[in-house]
Design a binder for these strands. Structure first.
Lengths: 219, 219
DNA sequence: CGACGGGTTGATCCAATTCAATAATCGTGG
DNA sequence: CCACGATTATTGAATTGGATCAACCCGTCG
């Protein structure tokens, strides 16, 4: 499949809601957010995207994009004209199946976010968020215990249905409890099991020294 | 495409999380809910489904279903073996495109729910919920102003990220303000524009008699 | 250097939850 | 058909988690 590249600078949009839909994008490197806007102007971050992920799927529904996608750092994407995607997915059954899976995975992923937004407390949301990032960084070969948040506190808050002050407070609390170390955008996870316990609704069981697993400092 | 039918009685499951994925289902008539469960047992309703909609899309991702689908009333679905769906969507390009749209539409729909869960107050959520139901009933030829809620207050609450008491209270308030009339599961929308104003964050602008549009009593 | 965006932290407030009591409705079996 | 227990719904009072308002710090950039 012929693929062209496209670069988006930090702060710029890859596409915006109401833009005509032509192609999908595979992220080569960089970090982006997707946002939707309500009629009265409230903005909500609905996803953060990183290298290896495919974006633009929202446009297939009606040939028009339904959200904004903004680069949070300089980003490079692979442009995949949807016409070509359709060619491939219809000519090769296995490619058709594969593409269905990509779409379905996005649906399932969103189920998890709805669970989070619908039933979790601030601490649980933040813990889940950090673990999710950690897991995604690890899957891409980066450290699962140390990374840089590409987004602001306000963007994290929007994504998690919280205000930026709450995000800041909870991160401070986690830091105070020895679960993480935060320094502005730089985060180090010190006790992943502790975070997992919080996600599962545990009231953070005192503290104890179960730093048994997941302490690591890969490249 | 050979299609078989399947009946599910009120309270029974069409499928459950972890069930093997084989087929999709088109709802012929009835009403269902989809729920996901967090590891610690919290249940969250992620969707309500009615006649004409397709369900089971979550299973494509990994050949295993990721949510429970339960009938809220006696329901009949059309069983569509996914293998056959793949045959059709890969042999006919237009069918492939159409199926992609179905999947993408689900993704876009969920964006709206995330916006709701992430940034709306209880009254806004309920107003949006009622308008959404109204619109879907209308699209199916039923009255847009009078319908029966097939789900309990607890299920509405779970879907909207609220407690059942809050749902009950807000419905009572809407009723008191003349926006709707509620009688247990039976709801009549008296002032759809008022509800729309609430969704858009308007503090319900006194009341005024703008019952201009959308009062109707179709069959 | 001063302004400005991003972050932290404290004090107060309020919307929604929790706890609780009561009522209405439904399903079931005698 | 009616009685009875079990859901489901409503409503009130008290509580609280997160929002809001506000002050301040820090680094960056013109």
């Amino acid at each position: 499949m012929v693929t062209t590249r496209k670069r988006i600078k930090r702060g710029e949009a890859l596409y915006r809601a109401a833009d005509h839909f032509d192609c999908l994008y595979a992220i080569r490197l960089g970090f982006l957010k997707s946002t939707v806007m309500s009629s009265d102007g409230r903005e909500q971050v609905i996803a953060f995207h990183m290298a290896g992920e495919m974006i633009g799927l929202d446009g297939i529904a009606s040939d028009v994009h339904s959200c904004d996608v903004i680069a949070l750092e300089d980003t490079e994407v692979c442009v995949l004209p949807y016409d070509r995607v359709l060619d491939v997915t219809t000519s090769l059954r296995s490619m058709g199946a594969h593409f269905h899976k990509i779409l379905s995975r996005e649906i399932v992923r969103q189920h998890g976010i709805m669970l989070l937004l619908g039933s979790m407390h601030a601490e649980e949301r933040l813990a889940a968020f950090l673990l999710n990032l950690s897991q995604r960084f690890e899957a891409r070969g980066y450290s699962r215990s140390e990374f840089v948040l590409r987004m602001t506190r306000a963007e994290i808050g929007s994504y998690l249905g919280l205000k930026l002050e709450t995000v800041s407070r909870v991160l401070s609390r986690f830091s105070h409890d020895g679960l993480i170390q935060v320094n502005q955008k730089h985060v180090q996870i010190l006790n992943a099991s502790g975070l997992r316990a919080i996600v599962s609704g545990q009231p953070a069981a005192a503290d104890a020294g179960n730093y048994d697993d997941d302490i690591s400092l890969e490249p």
